[in-house]
Amino acid sequence: MDKKMNLTIVYIDDDKKMQEDAFIDDISDMVDEIQYYEKPAEGLAYVKKNIDKNIVVILDWKFNSSTIQGDDVLKDIDEVSVLVPVIVFTGASIDASEANKMFKGNAFSCVPKDSDTTALVNAIHNAYDRIQNDIRSVMEKWILKQDAEKRNKPYMRSGDMVYTLNDILNSIRKQDEFGKETTRGILSLATELFTNNMREK
């Protein structure tokens, strides 16, 4: 039996009948919770509000009922945080130009709707691994562990700017210039520490 994941699945699909899909019943024991949304905007609102949770989004690609399509939702999620893995789950045929939209939107993976649950579970596991192992997610988790007061106090200075931990968290999530720079810095530092250790041995 797979180890339970500390994870919230946000499933956005306007085909209501998918709410009853077997994969949901199948994985309900593997994750903390599964949130189903028929409307992309509502799913997005949930992600925004619960951004501090470990979230994997499963996203339908073609929405019949709305002008908003999968690639728009990808973009919106990216603007909230690039650290939320999005698995596209679609019945549409994906040609080069559609695949291109997914890559551009940083989709984590794409699972066709005629796949078995195992394929979906594998994709969720991979996404969860990324949340666990991605240096940016690790930094995010570390900041989230600090108490609220500490997170609002100036933490570091870079050039003329002073940043609180929350500023850093935000930058890492959005991967703006400072966010990228910080990530690179931490990675270099970690590598440095790791190799120092090797030398001492």
């Binding site: 085909d15 009948k17 998918m18 899909d21 077997a22 994969f23 019943d25 199948d26 073609k62 019945g91 549409a92 045929s93 066709p112 709707k113 005629d114 796949s115 078995d116 649950t117 195992t118 979906l120």
Partner: peptide, 28 residues
């Protein structure tokens, strides 16, 4: 129709997978 078929086949496949898995374990 190919879109519909793909979705339907997926639903059937996963439900069948579910039944096959849990019935044999005597759970759910």
């Amino acid at each position: 129709i190919s879109h519909i078929l793909r979705i339907s086949i997926g639903i059937i496949k996963r439900s069948a997978e579910f039944v096959a898995k849990w019935v044999s374990l005597g759970q759910k």
